[in-house]
């Protein structure tokens, strides 16, 4: 096909291409700028000139008010685990479970050279939460006002289907409650009492966990995510869950 022919075609928009597919091009240093003829022809450009990049994230509108969100500045995490301690204390989390934890891995930084990296994880409070979709009793639900994925312990029958459905391994069965427990951004323990931050965000000495209202352009989370030249990503974008926990470096 000639370039002139391509120019006459209607651009179907790169949104229709799976994010996994886009990732592949990104790794080659290319960005998909258009899809033509059902994806059989792609319009590509060098990623070098592209500023901030949102990997697998769709920023169109924020359906909640406040739209609670967390940005994790991953490379600053030092695994001091004060966040975990604060979470356990605030939300009475038993020893056998967690609402938030830290993962560790060695990332290659050169030939035969690796560097340690810590990665805080928690419930991603997805806009399309797979856990909510599979719950047979509607014990877990998306709060209509804040977007927080909450639990109604009384309705939970402990079938653990949500645990299996969660792409982020963010749920555990609480023996004392006889129900599934999970992070709720400290809604009952802090936010509803007027606190502005979750316990983990307030406890972090390295300013890793930035918490706030994504629908407020004045908030730190909004500013970080919309900063030009900043690369922001989410975990497991291919699930289509549209998480509200974002990751970035620097």
């Amino acid at each position: 096909m000639k370039i002139e022919d391509l120019e006459k075609m209607r651009n179907e928009g790169p949104e229709s291409l799976p994010s996994e597919e886009r990732r592949k091009f990104l790794k080659m240093g290319l960005v998909v700028t258009g899809v033509f003829a059902g994806g059989s022809v792609l319009s590509l450009t060098s990623a070098r000139n592209v500023y901030g990049m949102l990997e697998g994230i769709q920023l169109k509108h924020y359906p909640y008010k406040p739209h609670y969100s967390m940005v994790i500045r991953q490379d600053r995490c030092i695994d001091c685990e004060r966040c975990k301690e604060a979470c356990v204390k605030t939300n009475n989390v038993p020893e056998y479970g967690y609402r938030t934890t830290i993962l560790e891995r060695e990332i290659p930084i050169g030939p035969e050279e690796t560097q340690r990296e810590f990665m805080p994880v928690l419930c991603n409070h997805c806009n399309q939460p797979p856990c909510v979709r599979v719950c047979p009793t509607k014990a877990t639900y998306k709060d209509k006002k804040t977007g927080i994925v909450m639990m109604n312990y009384k309705k939970c029958i402990g079938c653990k289907t949500c645990m299996a459905a969660c792409p982020y391994n963010a749920r555990y069965f609480n023996e004392e409650k006889r129900a599934i427990d999970k992070c709720n951004f400290c809604f009952d323990t802090r936010l509803s009492k007027g606190e502005k931050l979750t316990a983990c965000a307030a406890a972090c000495p390295a300013d890793v966990r930035i918490f706030g209202d994504l629908s407020d352009p004045e908030s730190r989370v909004y500013k970080l995510i919309h900063e030009p030249e900043r690369v922001v990503w989410v975990l497991r974008p291919e699930t289509g869950a549209m998480p509200n926990v974002y990751y970035t470096k620097g």
Binding site: D79, C80, E104, R116, F118, A206
Partner: peptide, 12 residues
């Protein structure tokens, strides 16, 4: 820079 070179964390 490179926080986790020296910070081994609770896990370390």
């Amino acid at each position: 820079t490179r926080c986790a070179v020296c910070h081994i964390g609770v896990m370390g």
